[in-house]
Computed example of a mutant assay.
Amino acid sequence: MLVVDSKTSILGIGEDTLDAAGAGLTAREVAQQGVVWPEIAELLDSRRADVDAFLAPLLARPDLRIVLTGAGTSAFIGECLVPALLRQGLRAEAVPTTDLVSGPLSFLQPAVPTLLVSFGRSGSSPESVAAVALADQLVDNVHHLVITCNADGELYRMAEGRSNALAILLPEATHDRGFAMTTSFTSMLLSAALAFDAVADDAVQAPSAAARQLLESALPLLKELVAQRFKRVVYLGSNELRGLAREAALKLLELTDGQVVALFDSPLGFRHGPKTIVNDRTLVVVMLSNDAHARRYDLDLLRELRNDGRAGRVLALSGIAEPALGGDCMLLQGVDDANDLALALPYIVFCQSYALLQSLDLGLRPDTPSVSGTVNRVVRGVTIYPCEGKSDVSGR
């Protein structure tokens, strides 16, 4: 776990000032990620025998359906992972717990062997717990992989002692105490990517170093963006980075308490209507893929948006240097060979940092940004209704 000295600063702001402004938790959790990720890689390496023993027989089944699930940010982890798993020849889908719980008979297939991969920072949201129970109730042959940050959460406890379940408990440092999920998001994403061999163990150091450097090198650019006070921000990304764009948009929406409207899409999809949101108060952030094929489409839209001249600013995030990026670009160092899942890690640190600084500039308290108090760190007020389907076979 990263311990930051009280005299140091994060994103150019002293820690005492951050604490007084109600931003200390979130700032530390954003800043620590480049240090935490190698710990995640070590953890997965130490659990490799258990993980492989659990997953290998399941992944060898050609009829296996993998359902990646979670609520809110945790659901977006699955959206980031699905393209990489599909390239491995696996049948993978991202279905939020919020969909599974409201429509279990629509999203769970009783006769199809299923691996339900549940992500949860607290592991205690009502929908996450209910999704596991519903899968047990409705699916004939179901297994559970739980990735969570909380040893006291319901998901972790439910997985213990079950032959059809495996839990990966992440270090305490990943259990964000601030409102917004930051370290927990990237750590659960990385853990799953390592578990499914979508990111190699030795590929973690480069994004970790890029994230640590970014916190210093990106500061002048971040300050410029904050000073421009954009009213609308659009994040665009292809394939794995589309799910990341969705998370980036949510992070800005959450930390600015809805004062900045945030949207996400793919670069190709953006032309099909959503592009109408662009005006002179709009920042568009294009997260460029390292995949050569997808990158061509990303660059086409980047050029188009700049030629349109309508957006207040069009910024490129890139792991590869090339003239087509133009001058308005945040170039990450040392990740030109990273796949897009690994590239997503430092990309989101940039987006989290911008959201944090914008929140402070708006006079909010990022650790508890909801002024009305109607949005909470762990969702409350959800009533779970019984599903009249197959008889309950949980506890097997």
Results as ranks from 00 to 15, higher is better:
184 S>H: 01
187 S>P: 12
172 E>V: 10
155 L>F: 00
182 T>I: 01
192 A>G: 05
157 R>T: 10
135 A>R: 05
187 S>E: 04
187 S>G: 07
179 F>K: 01
183 T>M: 02
187 S>T: 02
198 A>K: 04
145 L>V: 12
180 A>P: 08
197 D>F: 09
153 G>P: 00
155 L>K: 03
174 T>Q: 02
177 R>E: 12
192 A>H: 02
163 S>V: 13
185 F>T: 04
193 A>E: 04
152 D>T: 12
192 A>Y: 02
198 A>M: 12
196 F>N: 09
172 E>H: 14
166 L>F: 06
181 M>E: 05
179 F>S: 03
164 N>V: 11
156 Y>P: 00
194 L>I: 03
153 G>W: 08
152 D>W: 11
191 S>G: 09
157 R>S: 11
137 Q>C: 08
172 E>N: 05
186 T>S: 15
187 S>F: 10
178 G>M: 05
142 V>S: 07
167 A>C: 01
147 I>E: 07
135 A>W: 05
140 D>M: 13
148 T>Q: 11
187 S>H: 08
178 G>F: 01
142 V>L: 07
191 S>K: 06
135 A>V: 06
152 D>F: 06
170 L>V: 03
137 Q>F: 08
154 E>S: 08
186 T>W: 10
186 T>E: 12
160 E>Y: 04
186 T>L: 13
183 T>E: 00
167 A>Q: 01
186 T>C: 08
138 L>D: 04
149 C>W: 08
159 A>W: 05
164 N>D: 14
138 L>W: 10
153 G>C: 03
191 S>L: 00
199 V>H: 07
146 V>I: 15
164 N>Y: 14
139 V>R: 07
186 T>H: 09
190 L>Q: 01
